[in-house]
Design a protein around this nucleic acid. Sequence first.
RNA 1: GCUCCCUUAGCUCAGUCGGUUAGAGCGGCGGACUGUUAAUCCGUAGGUCCAAGGUUCAAGUCCUUGAGGGAGCGCCA
Length: 482
Amino acid sequence: MQRSKIADILREEPVNSEVLVKGWVKAFRNNQFIALNDGSTASNLQVVVDFERFDAATLDRIKFGACISATGTLVESQGKGQKVELKTEVLEILGDCNPDEYPLQPKKQSPEFLRENAHLRFRTNTFSAVFRIRHALAYAIHKFFNDRGFCYLHTPIITASDAEGAGEMFRVTTLSMENPPRTESGEINFKEDFFGKSTNLTVSGQLEAELGALALGAVYTFGPTFRAENSNTTRHLAEFWMIEPEVAFNDLRDNMDLAEDMLRYVINYALEHCADDLKILEDRLTEEEKTKPQDQRSELSLTEKLKFVSENEFIRLTYTEAIDILRNSNPNKKGKFQFPVEGWGTDLQSEHERYLVEKHFKKPVILTNYPAAIKAFYMRQDEPLEGVPGPTVSAMDILFPGIGEIVGGSQREERYDRLVNRMREMHIPEEELYWYLDTRRFGTCPHAGFGLGFERLVLFVTGMTNIRDVIAFPRYPGSAEF
RNA sequence: GCUCCCUUAGCUCAGUCGGUUAGAGCGGCGGACUGUUAAUCCGUAGGUCCAAGGUUCAAGUCCUUGAGGGAGCGCCA
């Protein structure tokens, strides 16, 4: 007999038919009622056993976490709380679960404890919901881009370029660490390394994506990304997944439209397809809010928050306008900011971004046209703008409540001379990036793209608070367990 | 990398001003009940108070150092 998935049974409710289910015991009540979950849905199937028909030794092995198989007739439930239930005829214990040793329990356990037991945390309601939603969001992203004619490009994970300028990198080498080959001047000789040069794990697929975009028109990457920064926050990982679309002939405005459409699309996708899982996370969040002081509680529930983002236009304003708002803001005048907003030209601190998003506008904000001095070499240089004190670039950052920067992107500098000048100013080695510069020498065109931190998106949609809880096995400073 | 906080039973946490025998709920185990919804009721076992050192007549409680964890900041997605 073929196994049925609990998701299918609960959807189709094939009453009076014979079904076989397999799954893990979530609760065994009254020596009669097993709440069975097989991961196909957040909901459990009620498996009813007549304890007089089964031997006590078998019933004794039905513990929280045990894996069982049950065959029987699906009937309308005689109790309240569920529509259908399984009247069990055959029961088999597939895997025992000794409650004395099993770390998980049928009660609320802290995210920190579960993180230390990340190999088992999929089995909790919260984490199974998080990972089903994570899957749905990944699928929605592929669907969004596919439906719009984008080409999914796999950019390399090992790179010889250390000029990407996005932070510290992890070295990839097969050289002996104890006794590496040396050059005559005593430096490590990477000519003898596996690739014949020094290599690292990628910090971004953007530069390669640009190469693709300038032929395929519209491409996106979706792959792992590595940053060896010693970042200890709730929104940084050393290994994370990033989506990087890159589109020929797009300007900054097109770029913002694309990012905004994509975020709305995937959030709506989750609202439409993950209602059960979102309910679990919403209830969890509501409980958590109750423990906070009244003034720190969120006014919106999780789904309300998601709907709010999907139904409202993002606020778009320039860096210069943002500085004006911040300079005249109450917290700045009253000296409440740890970093007072003084002049034009310095980067915004996260307290400033949070003020704009969470207090001033109360919706997602896209900041554009940042000072050139604080942004990357490849961003397109703006023509001097009236009332703006210094040179700016066509950059855009999308800021979300609670998360901060979820997207960072720009229109790219497509003009060869401008790009080379900028690289020289910022000491980016031209020789190493000859292939990047070639796109500007041969048939260059305006184009734009951005990077979306996938885990930050999952963080927002699930309402979790620590990014380490939305990736299965997080990597961060001091931790590469599992 | 910087700042602050935490570490007590399997889990979540309480433990007053340093004071005598270390507390609860959940979970476990034993029993009762048998249409339950994290079932309920009765009983019961369970402790290197993170580690080392120090102060003190006396340390879970105070001090120092270390380990592990969390939050914030910086770096960014």
